[in-house]
């Protein structure tokens, strides 16, 4: 067994880009599952109707 190599702080903390990626994934989740026209307006209707089965099946509130 080798002795553990000291890890620098920059390697040990979650990088900023990863948090930003996580935030944009959450925004995308909102657009797929929750958007009712508040942000996207008309385009929301297309997304909404296409994934309509999925929204109900995943237990998300729906009209």
């Amino acid at each position: 067994m080798t002795t553990p190599v000291p890890v620098s702080r920059s390697v040990r903390t979650v990088p900023l880009w990863a948090w930003l990626l996580a935030m944009s994934s959450l925004l995308a989740l909102y657009l797929v599952l929750q958007e009712n026209g508040m942000l996207l307006g008309q385009a929301a209707e297309f997304i909404h109707e296409f994934v309509h089965d999925g929204r109900h099946a995943l237990g998300v509130p729906c009209h």
Binding site: L29, V32, F50, V51, D53, G54, L58
Partner: peptide
């Protein structure tokens, strides 16, 4: 669409 939604989510 329901299946695609599950995969994307």
């Amino acid at each position: 669409g329901g299946m695609v939604a599950a995969v994307v989510v």
